[in-house]
């Protein structure tokens, strides 16, 4: 427990006396390390909001940030941290906005008075708690951000392109791990549905190596596409990969493989021409 109930009341009183001046000092001190990267109006809005919920929580006799009256305060702090994390501020630059409240308060305390000194130390401890909470929400927000970006990168690295009417393709580039192979599989199959394409080509020219697991994923994709009523070809198998596939004893079965993407497309076009052409304009 950072504060006693009395202390929290006294802190609320302390914050309320000459509040406009206190907020102004706080904004000035918090703004200094941000070197103008956050507009003063924005900072003032954030600090004023933080000030408001802080006083309200203390009035309710909050003794601990994790206790019930601190709910709104936690939400505001978390919001502040998330916003700063997304705007690219560092963790220090974020927490300093909270810690500068100490500076703002110290200027107005008579530290020679033992009672006031005791209070001030308690307030400090409490502000530390707020700062630590800001730190941890900041890092949580960053982790979220990184996870989001990793996912976006995964999507960027596996584009499903429409190659021809009724033909979609995924050109795979780079190392394929199990997670990425799975994403490719799902996206390719969804593209078949979305575009109504009966043909798909997986081009692995840009894949340096294939292990058993990845090969399994590719094979499963082909079988799943077949279940959905589409045909899936694999193109661009390099000699080393062909050797690995044989060495690992992976059965490619009756799956069509072609040397290049162009060969695969030609194969598909010939087949679909045979399908529709055979009926519409019989070969003489």
């Amino acid at each position: 427990m950072a504060l006693s109930t009395d202390e929290s009341r006294r802190m609320a009183d302390r914050l309320r006396t000459d509040s406009a001046d206190l907020v102004a000092t706080w904004v000035a001190k918090a703004g200094a390390p941000l070197t103008g990267r956050l507009s003063e109006g924005e900072l003032r809005r954030q600090i004023t909001e933080l000030y408001g919920v802080l006083v309200a929580a203390l009035d309710e006799g909050m003794t601990d940030l994790s206790a019930a009256p601190g709910g709104e305060l936690r939400a505001v702090l978390a919001d502040l941290s998330r916003g700063r994390a997304r705007q690219g501020f560092s963790a220090t630059e974020t927490a300093v906005s909270v810690f500068t409240l100490k500076d703002a308060l110290s200027g107005r305390a008579d530290l020679a008075d033992p009672a006031e000194l005791r209070d001030f130390l308690s307030f400090n401890r409490f502000i530390d708690e707020l700062g630590l909470f800001t730190f941890s929400s900041y890092s949580a927000a960053r982790e979220e951000l990184i996870a989001d970006q990793a996912e976006q990168l995964l999507e960027l690295s596996t584009p499903v392109v429409k190659l021809w009417e009724g033909v979609v393709a995924v050109p795979l580039v780079g190392t394929l791990d199990s997670a990425r192979a799975q994403v490719v599989m799902e996206r390719l199959l969804q593209a078949l549905v979305d575009t109504g394409s009966p043909y798909a080509i997986i081009d692995i020219t840009g894949v340096p190596a294939v292990d058993t697991q990845v090969a399994q994923h590719i094979l499963k994709t082909v079988v799943a596409a077949r279940l959905m009523g589409a045909e899936c070809l694999i193109s661009g198998i390099r000699p080393q990969i062909a050797q690995t596939i044989v060495a690992l004893g992976i059965e490619f079965g009756d799956i069509a493989t072609k040397a290049t993407l162009a060969d695969a497309l030609r194969h598909v076009l010939r087949r679909s021409a045979a399908r529709t052409g055979g009926r519409a304009e019989p070969v003489a």
């Binding site: 199959l189 969804q190 799943a224 959905m228």
Partner: peptide, 9 residues
Amino acid sequence: RPAVAITLV
């Protein structure tokens, strides 16, 4: 559906 096909495989 794709998810169904993957599951069946």
